[in-house]
Design a protein around this nucleic acid. Structure first.
Lengths: 340, 340
DNA sequence: TTACCCACCGAAAACGATTGCACAATCGAT
DNA sequence: ATCGATTGTGCAATCGTTTTCGGTGGGTAA
């Protein structure tokens, strides 16, 4: 069916455009009778407003942008679903962009977002992000920005991420409680704030136990030969009984290594990870992990964004999501084993 | 920096808006001198065109929609990346929607797309899709539609998918070549055309070998207890030497089962799958698979969509992507084993 | 001088909606 | 009969562009 404009609709109704417009938006000035007539005709003639034209007057485009460093298989799909849900609930639609971890592209995309006048921006910053530069200049296009997941801790832009430091400390404590005294923590790229935070928390966690729990941290950069670095560190630390894995990506690499080299989980070595809750259930044995909820992060960030879009005096918020420990089958309880 | 409008820019330049507009778009009517002046001023005053306003004139929105049944961890991220790349190359932006496998929602989303006047739609249909209904009415909003991946074979709307029938036949042949004579094919939900096609191909492939290769097909529906159905069928067919897995989702479930029950790959049982090329490298041993490229599908579909958007007399295309066999470590060569 | 062409530029009408303001009609009150 | 208030509508401006259609002014040819 062909689209009809407000003007055409007004013509067939033999009324003025303004009356029709007001009738459709339930303006109190319009009588019930004409409202009814107009509404009936609008469905009859299949009228739908042209959102671009409306925008030009009202200054709202109904568009929210999500900018991601990359689309990976973990975390992102669920994050997108959560965001997409709240955006659609609000009758907005979601644009997505990928920055390929480049600061340049991040700037370009935000510039473009300003041009097409999106109403709000959700940004997960990439490894290329330049912390020294002033991010503030970006938001001045008008649309508020909320940082999520991979954030840059600051005091001017709202951000929501998971509590990364405490989680690593909790991990150390949990492993210690289960009797593990020699732990290796495996981390991803140090370019990410998220890695730094988790790494720091791991070391701090070890300090809490003074000498009772010993640990090493292994950083795996993108171009490292995982096979090599892992077998090296395990050889150097044969007393290791547990691994702490900071993400699903890291976990995947480590599982491959362990499987290939005949390590049994948890008989030979225990594993504790941070995960978005998909992977741990897919491999055998199911992996004990801290549940890092993409859904929660997505919903919170999107909700905050809409708050900021509505208020004219937005307050900057710093939200840290707590992770929940999900105990499955990959951590051996050495204390009970010793007893039994 | 504040945004400036064309009118304001024209004022500071002491020229008319039309001249400025033309100068910026390199219209031949404008002299090089004024073009230069205008362009310099435009960067000086940080002018960027308001695309919403432009679209109101030009009847285009610069928006392309991608409608997916769900955001899963396999396939979708890479598919999105590919599509996003070509869309951005064309200076369009990508809207994404999820239909949650509901036909209702698919209709709603397309209706909404018409309202915001997207210029083109990429649709991967969900299990809820009603094949009996007429999809044609949808496209009449004006924007062309291209179906991708999960398509509905028809003659009115372009679609790009992978060659699903031939691939199953090739799988049977390959396994037979490797000496396997008892195969179980594992499939997902029969609601999907893609499943039906692969399933049919599998049965046809078996027929080709008459009685020399025997096979069973196992359909796993969403609410099935995988553990149960798998152990049952393996018990009933103890002579089975190879499994054919139609997707990463199915593969993940089967791996879990095999690992848990102590089957070694490929010593105890061989595995061949269809995959987007991520998972097979993440688990040990690496899985021999037919590479079902999300990138290829995404690029082709998006490219076709843009062709249709540009041409006023679009031809409907039916593209089937060939899959490439990637031989890794999960299929045992029984013939060589017998010789050796 | 007249006529005509060409290279440049401007005025103004779209595009499709929202909205402040004026105005017409009705009615009760004076 | 006149005035004010009330109710329901329409006119016209506006948002920021693009684009059609003319209009200058100078140069060249007749």
């Amino acid at each position: 069916m062909k689209k009809i404009t407000l003007k055409e609709l007004a013509e067939v109704l033999n009324m003025s455009v303004s009356t029709v417009s007001r009738a459709l938006s339930d303006h109190p000035d319009i009588s019930e009778g004409t409202k009814k007539k107009v509404k009936e005709a609008s469905v009859l003639y299949n009228y739908t407003p042209n959102l671009r034209a409306r925008y030009l007057r009202t200054k709202s485009s109904g568009l929210v942008a999500l900018i991601l460093p990359e689309y990976n298989m973990f975390f992102i799909p669920a994050l997108m679903k959560a965001i997409s849900d709240v955006v659609n609930e609000q009758n907005y639609s979601l644009l997505i962009f990928q920055s390929d971890d480049s600061y340049e592209k991040e700037l370009d995309i935000i510039e473009y977002c300003n041009q097409i006048s999106v109403d709000g921006i959700l940004l997960s910053i990439g490894t290329g992000f330049d912390h020294k530069k002033d991010l503030m200049e970006l938001s001045t296009g008008g649309a508020p920005i909320v940082l999520l997941d991979r954030v840059w801790p600051n005091e001017r832009i709202s951000h929501v991420s998971i509590e990364g430091e405490k989680i690593s400390e909790r991990a150390v404590k949990y492993l210690s409680d289960m009797g593990h005294q020699h732990i290796i923590g495996v981390f991803g790229s140090m370019d990410l704030t998220i890695t730094k935070t988790r790494h720091k928390g791991f070391l701090d966690g070890l300090k809490d136990f003074d000498q009772k729990v010993k640990g090493k941290a292994l950083i795996i950069e993108a171009d490292d030969d995982v096979e090599n670095v892992l077998s090296k560190i395990l050889k150097e630390n044969p007393e290791t009984t547990a691994l702490y894995l900071m993400s699903d990506e890291v976990a995947m690499k480590v599982y491959y290594f362990l499987n290939k080299n005949g390590y049994r989980i948890p008989e030979d070595i225990s594993v504790l990870s941070i995960s978005d809750g998909t992977l741990p259930f897919l491999i055998h044995p199911k992996i004990t992990h801290f549940y890092h909820s993409p859904t929660e992060i997505g919903r919170r960030a999107a909700t905050i964004l809409f708050e900021q879009m509505k208020s004219n005096e937005p307050s900057v918020q710093d939200v840290r999501i707590e992770c929940e420990l999900v105990e499955l089958d990959s951590v051996k309880n050495l204390k009970e084993a010793a007893k039994g």
